[in-house]
């Protein structure tokens, strides 16, 4: 019972109560996957939207996905499949910038989600933007940050307890002690690295330019201010500060980095508005 409650806490503080494994699922599978299944009603709505998309009605499909993703069930958790499918619908309705946002959200939830990786690369190429790093995509496909963080933490904590026992009561063999210390460092190190490469880290300060025409970066938060550059639709920006309806943002890195003001309505935060961080209530 204790392990089950810990697993549910680790999975998500807002995991739906109906989230249980299927009858044929093994305990090991349930522990390895921090994912849970959605209810039957949501699945039926998703299937209907999928059918609309397959039958060539992307606008209907988009309405279905939007309604589903805005439902309370998906307020604090997300489904990479639904966001990816929504991106496909947006792509087919001729809105590649919005589609790039949806694919990025799918990859935020599951960075190793191959269909979203491929569709994002296609959409970004269409928008004239560089595709994400193929090396990182492959890395995420092989090793999920979530697994690294949780698995590393488990190994690290077990090693710590082992080390405590060895130091106090056990045979103070140098081999045992070094092994336990090494496992402790590797476990928590993997957890730390997983946290650092997790794309969700800092996502609350990021947004995607979703205006169909690339907006101009302005030197001051005013329509009449001098334009100091342009942001292409689909560009990821980092919000540095806010002044009313204006955001002070930065985009790019190195020599291509630029900073300036844009109207907040021209970009959409990477995280959906419903999923506020716990610290922010």
């Amino acid at each position: 019972m204790a392990s089950a409650s810990i697993a549910s806490l680790l999975a998500s503080p807002a995991a739906p109560t109906e989230s249980v494994g299927s009858a044929g699922q093994t305990d090991a599978e349930a522990k390895n996957a921090p994912k849970v299944s959605a209810g039957g009603e949501a699945a039926a709505k998703a299937a209907a939207a999928n059918a609309s998309l397959l039958s060539g009605h992307p606008i209907d499909a988009l309405a279905g996905y939007t309604q589903l993703l805005e439902s309370p069930q998906f307020a604090r958790v997300g489904s990479p499949e639904l966001w990816c499918n929504r991106g496909l619908a947006e792509e087919k309705t001729g809105d590649p910038a919005a589609a790039s946002l949806s694919f990025r959200r799918a990859l935020l939830l599951d960075p190793g989600f191959v269909p979203a990786q491929q569709q994002l690369a296609v959409v970004l190429t269409t928008l004239g933007l560089p595709a994400p790093s193929a090396r990182m995509s492959r890395l995420f496909t092989m090793l999920s940050p979530e697994v690294m963080i949780l698995g590393g933490a488990v190994i690290g904590w077990i090693s710590l307890f082992l080390l405590v026992v060895l130091l106090v009561r056990g045979p103070r063999s140098r081999g045992y002690l070094v092994s336990a210390l090494l496992a402790l460092i590797l476990g928590h190190g993997a957890s730390l690295v997983g946290s650092l490469i997790d794309p969700r880290r800092g996502a609350e300060h990021q947004a995607v330019v979703t205006a169909k025409k690339g907006p101009a970066l302005r030197s001051t938060p005013a329509d009449s201010a001098t334009g100091i550059g342009n942001l292409a639709p689909g560009t990821v920006i980092t919000i540095l500060s806010q002044n009313g309806a204006w955001w002070y943002v930065s985009s790019g890195s190195g020599k291509a980095a630029q900073q300036g003001w844009i109207l907040s309505e021209l970009a959409t935060p990477l995280l959906p508005p419903s999923c506020a961080l716990p610290s922010r209530g």
Binding site: S12, A49, V77, S79, E81, D110, A153, P278
Partner: peptide, 24 residues
């Protein structure tokens, strides 16, 4: 699944990294 076709199934993931989750 052919590219461009919708992906079946729904899995739920947290929007937060474990470090941001109170439980963790």
């Amino acid at each position: 699944v052919s590219p461009g076709d919708p992906i079946p199934g729904i899995t739920l993931h947290s929007w937060w990294t474990p470090a941001h989750r109170p439980g963790f």
